[in-house]
Each structure stands twice: as C-alpha cells, then as structure tokens.
C-alpha cells in the first residue's frame, strides 16, 4: 500500500525534524544558540520545499532564511546580550496562552478534512488560473522558468509593491536605529573612516579573512549569473540580490565593518537602494510611453530589436535587475545598521 500514499517517508522525517528544530530554537536559553538552530530550521524547511518542486522558493529560503536572517539575529545579539534572564513564576500565564493557542490549533485542524488532498492536481489552487501560466508562458514571454515569468510579468504589480515593501523596511530601520555620529560623540577622538587603518582584532583568524577574500568574487559572479540566468534556471532578482548582499556582509564580518564602510558610504548606499525601485518603476513608465499599459513589457518591442514576446523577456530582465539592486543594498544597509547599532562606524 505504500506507493499509493501521496507522501513518502523522507518528507515525514523532514517535517518532524522541522517541528523539533522550531521547539529547540524557542526553548534554548542562549540566544546565539537559538539563532543558529533557527538557521538549521530554515535549511530543513528549504529541503522540504525543494522536495515539493518549489526550487525557486527553496533557493530563496537557503539564501534568505538560513543565511541573511541568521546574520541579522547574530548582529543584533552582538550589540546587546545573548543571555536570557530567568525569573520565577509566569508559568500560569504561559499555560493559559498554551491553552488558547491549542484551541486555535484544534479549530484549524478541524478544517483538515475539507482540504483538497495533498498533491491533488485538480484542487482549486492548481486548476483555476495556474494552468494559464503554464500553457502560455513560452508563447507570451519565451521564458521557460514559469516562476520568473509569473513573478516579473504576469504579476509584475505584485512584485513591484513587494520591492517597495523591502525599500520601506530599509527606511524604517534607518529611522529606528540611525544615530548621527556627531551628536553621539562624547570623548572619542574624531576618526575618518576613509583614512583610518582597518582595525583587525588580533583574535580574528587570518585563514577566515583570506578565504573570504578569495570567495567573495566567486559569490558575486554566481549571484550575477543567478540574476541573468533566472529565465532558464532557478533564480532571479531576489535570490541574486540576496547573494550579492550576503557577499558584502561576509566581507564585513570576516574583516571589519570599517573595511566595508570605506567602500560603501552611507549616502550612495541609500541612493542605490532607491535606484532599484526607480528602475523597476521606470520600466513600467517606459511601457506606457511606448503605447502599452503600465508594466506591459510587450509594447517595448517598438524600441527593442525583437518581437513582442522577446521584448517581454527583456523587460523581465530589466525588472529583475532593479529588484536585485534594491534587495542587495537594503540587506547590506539593514546589516550595517544592526551591526553598528545605527552609528555606521564600527561593529560586528
């Protein structure tokens, strides 16, 4: 009877492991440990999604969930404290919340028999609008990776607004954390980042520094490949942008934040975050000027040398580049803010 089961043992194992990691990440007393277990949780999640055929989602989760968000948590802890203060009492409250949450869970589980079976190709989610994308993507856009064509073309508005959300989150972190260095300076001597020598901690490993110096160009090359080849393979602006951001974050961690800040000043960084969104929006406007609707790349065929479908393919590439720029620099800006506690001078 086993082959008739729609889910196989490996998936069951991974799903149980995911719950286990979630519980461990929340119950561990040391916050640094919790951050690392949370990274492992993300990797398990990414395996599950890859197993269900969602390769782009798994790729994004591997770069974002397991990579960058773990780094964010670690750099926050670096500036604060990793220990949790244990205080007596509070058990009754925790139990009460536990009962409430269990009730909510039981209500959700009671809806379980009404769900379409897992993997049913005729379920409402699979049988309504999705077949249109599968059947028409090649004819409309020449893009075999359906996720890319739906992401940047059919649902371009969606992605534009998601990119704006990332941009707004970046600005929000700025307004929360950023402190003007001139005001917060008390007795520390004025130090120009551009001329000051990088201050390596003697305990920093030479091997880590040299290895990451060697790795970063390849990471960036791979990220550019991910953005440019996103039409034909898993990848695209989000994944490539996150990997580019992560390569710079790796430099900041393995050397020193100052090492990075000598190359990336605050102002150009913020301008670049905004320029990605602007590029996306400008491509939309260009479509209007060439006679189409907003973000209808097909009308760009009057300025591009190829036919309508190829123009949509090129439009997708331009938009993905915009997404990549915004995501890359907002990840970097968020990391610098968190790691330097908003001072933009030194940190993790």
């Amino acid at each position: 009877m086993m082959p008739s089961l729609p889910i196989w043992q490996f998936d069951v194992l991974l799903l149980v492991l995911v719950v286990l990691f979630a519980v461990v990440a929340l119950s561990i007393r040391n916050l640094m440990g919790a951050a690392v277990v949370f990274g492992a949780y993300s990797f398990m999640m990414c395996l599950i999604w890859a197993g269900m055929g969602a390769v782009d989602v798994a790729f994004t989760e591997a770069a974002v969930g397991a990579g960058v968000s773990t780094v964010f948590i670690v750099s926050t802890i670096y500036n604060t404290s990793a220990t949790m203060r244990s205080r007596p009492g509070g058990m009754a409250f925790k139990l009460f919340i536990g009962v409430v949450v269990t009730l909510a869970g039981v209500f959700l589980l009671s809806a379980l028999p009404d769900f379409p079976d897992w993997g049913d190709p005729n379920s409402p989610a699979n049988a309504t609008v999705a077949p249109y994308y599968i059947e028409n993507s090649i004819r409309d856009t020449h893009v075999p990776n359906l996720v890319t064509s739906v992401l940047a073309d059919y649902r371009g508005f969606d992605t534009l607004l998601e990119t704006i959300v990332v941009f707004i989150a970046c600005i929000a972190i700025y307004s929360i954390l950023r402190i003007e260095t001139a005001k917060s300076k008390t007795d520390e001597p004025e130090e120009d980042i551009a001329t000051a020598p990088p201050s390596y901690d003697p305990s920093d490993s030479l091997i880590v520094r040299q290895a990451s110096r060697f790795m970063v160009p390849f990471m960036q090359l791979f990220a550019l490949y991910v953005i440019a080849h996103g039409h034909y393979s898993p990848g695209g602006g989000f994944q490539g942008g996150v990997i580019l951001g992560a390569s710079l974050i790796l430099l900041a961690i393995s050397f020193d934040l100052k090492f990075l800040l000598r190359q990336w000043r605050e102002k150009p960084l913020m301008l670049l975050v905004a320029s990605g969104v602007c590029l996306y929006a400008t491509v939309g406007l260009a479509c209007m000027f060439t006679g189409g609707n907003y973000l209808d790349y097909g009308s760009l065929d009057s300025v591009l040398p190829n036919d309508r479908a190829m123009a949509r393919s090129h439009g997708i590439l331009l938009v993905e580049i915009g997404v990549g720029i915004t995501v890359m620099f907002s990840m970097l800006a968020i990391h610098i803010n968190l790691a330097s506690n908003g001072r933009f001078d030194r940190g993790l």
Binding site: T60, F72, L151, T159, E162, L338
Partner: peptide
C-alpha cells in the same frame, strides 16, 4: 503550480525585511 511559489518567494524576502525591522526595534 508556479503561482503559489511566486507568492511565497516574495513573502520570504519581505519576511526577512520585517524581521530586520523587528530586530531593529528590539535593539
């Protein structure tokens, strides 16, 4: 099905941005 995948792909990236805002507030 590509549709549910792209919705979640963007949700992951927005999720890390909101996580960053949450951590910034906590800090």
């Amino acid at each position: 099905n590509p549709l549910t995948q792209i919705l979640m792909l963007t949700a992951i990236v927005v999720g890390v941005a909101t996580l960053g805002v949450g951590l910034g507030l906590a800090q």
